[in-house]
């Protein structure tokens, strides 16, 4: 059973923020949160899935160029694989990444989807 490995990354995974919590001793440590907006830099549709991801196949993984500059690897969700294109604007959502079997924890984290019109 693995828990701490997932738990220590809650801030990064849930909201793309660093884990910093400002305390009296570390007042300078402020949380930076990405806007979650970016574009698809590249993508690949996974048909041969590793353990823990079998139920989701086929799924699309992508390299997302965030508006702030850095790139992240994440799944692209809420889209049919054939509709994915390089350059497509996407926004961050928090989704289920995987489950540790039927009785283990559910791991949540960032994925990206085509921007929904406001």
């Amino acid at each position: 059973m693995q828990v701490s490995r997932y738990w220590r990354m809650n801030a990064q995974r849930y909201m793309m923020a660093n884990g910093g919590v400002a305390t009296a001793e570390k007042e300078e440590e402020k949380t930076f949160t990405f806007s979650g907006r970016g574009t698809i830099y590249s993508y690949s549709t996974v048909y041969d899935a590793p353990a823990g991801f079998e139920a989701y196949k086929p799924y699309v993984v992508g390299l997302i160029k965030l508006d702030e500059g850095p790139m992240v690897t994440a799944q692209i969700t809420d889209i049919d694989a054939k509709e994915v294109e390089i350059g497509m604007p996407v926004e961050m959502v928090t989704r289920k990444l995987r489950t540790e079997g039927d009785e283990g924890v559910i791991v949540y984290g960032y994925k990206f989807r085509p921007s929904v019109v406001v």
């Binding site: 690949s44 590793p50 993984v61």
Partner: peptide
């Protein structure tokens, strides 16, 4: 995020 060696090559 479900990435495999083949997925990285795919990217």
């Amino acid at each position: 995020h479900g990435v495999t060696p083949a997925a990285v090559a795919g990217l």
